[in-house]
């Protein structure tokens, strides 16, 4: 038990070290989760929009997704 306690206290520097690692974890994990969630939401929206389009005009040619074949 004393070993664990010493590990967290870090000679009294624990009050600085642990918040530093905690802030890092919160910012990095938060940003990654937020990025994942918006990506998932947008991909869902895109899929439903494309689905509507396909239903309405099943043989529509050309690319209306903002990119031509060459990506420009």
């Amino acid at each position: 038990m004393d070993g664990i306690r010493a590990f967290f206290e870090m000679d009294g520097y624990g009050v600085y070290v642990w918040p530093a690692f905690a802030v890092t974890a919160i910012v990095l994990i938060g940003l990654a989760l937020a990025s994942l969630r918006t990506l998932r939401d947008n991909e869902e929206t895109l899929e439903s929009l494309q689905g509507q389009r396909r239903r309405r005009a099943p043989v529509a040619g050309g690319q209306a997704d903002g990119t031509d074949g060459d990506g420009r």
């Binding site: 947008n42 895109l46 929009l49 990119t67």
Partner: peptide, 10 residues
């Protein structure tokens, strides 16, 4: 990229 496509489709 997805956002730009959504915008174009809308």
């Amino acid at each position: 990229i997805a956002g730009r496509k959504i915008r174009a489709l809308r």
